[in-house]
Amino acid sequence: MMKQILTLLTVLLVFTACERDLNTEGPDLVDLYGDLAVLEELKVSQPSAKFADGETVYFTARFSKLVNWRLTITGTISGAQKIFENKSKVLDASNTTWAGEFSKLPFFKTEMCDVELVANDSIKFNTQFIIQSLVEPKGLVVADFENGMNPEWSTFVQSGANMSFNITDQGAASPQGEFFYDMAGEVNWDWLIGMIEFPGAAYSETESFPLPENPNDVYFNAMIYVPDSITNAVILFQFREDDNEDGTFTEANEDMYAIELKGNFESGWQVYSQKYADLVSIVNGAPAEPNGNKKLEPNKLNRISLLFLANPSSGYSKALLDYVIFTEGKPLIP
């Protein structure tokens, strides 16, 4: 019996000699509840940057404890904004590196930027920074309306009242470049007010858009502006796939997917992004089975249609469209 007890205790003692990580768990309480002091004020790593040449910029500041901070970079001409938010003691290259992207439309221009840091809603710092050049977003631009209508595109506009399906720079500031597409009118006999179609042939020598095969790698992005006074706008993007690759879309036996935007739109220009893999099949606003091979295949995308709709009894409706682009790996605003 004693032998068994000693054996057991020996094994236990050997085992308990194992090492263990004795670091404290969680953030230091002093970071959360200690006194707050500014150890280093806001600084910018360089006064200006040529983002087009691959340059980046970052901002630094240090505090004595963890703070909730928000760094806002605002273009003095464009009004574009890039916002960094985090909770940390230190701002450095790891959490504030900027290569010219935006968080809120419009796009930045080559311009002076105001930079504001707000920590714990009470401490504020300001500085400035100059953008010398910008990087164009990477992706397949379907339409930016800067060079008029592409002859391959087609439009259909009902003969309603106050119709205005045209490219313009009037009525709102363009979020990208100078021009955007204005869709407006009143049609009291049909939901459809008008539409514009972008065929794949406008972008490649085949009839399909030059996109990767994997739907998880492809994001569809479009900039849309619906005035605050408009509550009846319905924007329907349709994506028609040429499943059998015969050069045309056949509704009876090929897939069509859609994005339907309606309801309360946020104020101002907004970027709507959706992963291609998340597209759904919709018929008359209700989910439906696709008619084709039921696979989401961006490389077989044959045509994009944008239908601008409104309830015929609801009167006048209006929406603006700009910068329709496919991006790879991530949406236009990550």
Binding site: R20, D21, N23, G26
Partner: peptide
Amino acid sequence: EIVGQGTS
């Protein structure tokens, strides 16, 4: 506790 949470 064996290790502290946020403090020693």
